[in-house]
Design a protein around this nucleic acid. Structure first.
Lengths: 252, 252
DNA sequence: TGACATTTGTTCGTATATCGCACACAATGG
DNA sequence: CCATTGTGTGCGATATACGAACAAATGTCA
């Protein structure tokens, strides 16, 4: 790709949109300029463009995103067959397990939820398609990282902010890499309150007919009701059944 | 706003992203150019920019969006307090009604789901935050359109593609405007299989402490289990309670 | 309160980046 | 083999970014 095959005005605009997620819903021109490290004049032009197109509102002082911006993410969810294909299987899985079931893919150091069948709300966080969690301390994240070449997984860990969310959180890269080996060998990952106290989850990879990992699915349960030790025997068989049902459906 | 306060490169890029939603997940340069009515060279630069930034993959022939694109929509869902504020109330509502409950706002001629608590799956469509339905034939759409000034509502109907989805679908603008008056007077809207055979729903507005309509919430049920005639007595009281609980929480 | 410092939004001029067009070339299919 | 469709590139005209300057608003302190 040549130097000139890059539209920097477009890239700058996308950066401005993402700036909204990091803080509040309202951003002034100067705030957005600080968050994006772009010139105030440039940010102003991007924001006015968003407003002109209806992706943002402007009251003369602050800009706020409008729901029209969801069209952009929806372009992915609607265009990609994976979420729609997984959804009915997650519904069934969730019903049989009596717990929430989700599917996600990897994006950088995060997992991104692409489909979800919720039962009771157990987490403090509100998860919907598009939600992100750090991969290193999520069961689906462990599964997805384990599917990568070890040097790639290590590179992602190096870029991750390995935060000690709870007393249980594993933050040592070597220890995590070792866990990835176990996950690869045994085909599942269990998280025992590493992300949030009171929450356990178990995940398996979703593989296509070539055996490539294209996503991960999990079941989450309150630790008070389902101790981590019981996660495997209670839910792994159900996850394996879903996994097996999906494999032939996923052609590459 | 001056003419030069508009970054057309940015606007063109956003148009390219939206082009993915309309068709398949894979777009060639020429296809994207046709869909957006932009020059091939321009579309090519936009797509290469998306690929360079990791929002798209490029195999040398086709471009596909990556889950990173969900960051853009997520910037809205994370930044706006409304979805997170509504979610627990929808969960409760859904549990008490034993049916799915959702919240949406208006974007042009569509309603956009911003939160949802699903029970069993009744619709053929998979609804998640970001999903869109035509406003004119959805219960929440009727409520949101009824909240507008009548000439605005009429203008939106004029722009809508009033499709006869089922035998029950109302498509006459005058008839719809009359229905909006009734909705405004009585404070709720019921849809009896106008969108999809077998699906009934009832919606009420969510108002802030000034009485302005900021969203709509609904309950959907299978027509086989809950005839449209029973929707009101069964679910309207629950919706009204949720509505009342939300009002003081919504400051403007 | 009033003077001053700081922050923020806006405008301007100019160097640079980008657009749309025209054309060359490659792949594909009848 | 030619028609068709799609991709890459050079170029002149135009649009855009940047830094700086200015104006307005806001905050600070005596």
């Amino acid at each position: 790709m040549r130097e000139t095959d890059f539209v920097s005005g477009f890239a700058r605009g996308l950066k401005v949109i993402e700036a909204f997620g990091e803080t509040r819903q309202r951003l002034s021109i100067a705030e957005a300029a600080k968050l994006t490290a772009l010139d105030r004049a440039t940010v102003r032009r991007s924001l006015l463009t968003l407003a002109e197109l209806g992706y943002a509102d402007y009251d003369g002082k602050f800009f706020t995103l409008t729901p029209k911006i969801l069209r952009l993410g929806h372009a992915y969810l609607a265009a990609t067959p994976l979420p729609a294909l997984l959804q009915p299987h997650l519904d069934l899985l969730s019903e049989r397990a009596g717990q929430s079931a989700s599917a996600s893919v990897l994006d950088g150091t995060d997992i991104v939820y692409i489909a979800r069948a919720a039962q009771r709300r157990v987490m403090s966080i509100n998860l919907t398609p598009g939600s992100r969690l750090p991969a290193y301390c999520a069961s689906m994240g462990r599964v997805l990282l384990a599917a990568l070449a070890e040097n790639e997984a290590r590179a992602i860990l190096a870029r991750s902010e390995l935060k000690q969310n709870t007393a249980n959180t594993r933050t040592d890269p070597d220890e995590l890499i070792a866990e990835f080996r176990r996950v690869r060998a045994e085909g599942y990952a269990i998280i025992d309150q590493e992300l949030e106290i009171g929450l356990c989850s178990i995940a398996v990879p979703v593989e296509n007919d070539r055996g490539e990992t294209v996503a991960a699915i999990n079941i989450g349960a309150p630790a008070a009701l389902v101790p981590a030790a019981e996660m495997k025997e209670r839910y792994l068989p159900l996850l394996r059944e879903t996994q097996a049902a999906l494999r032939p459906l996923l052609r590459r």
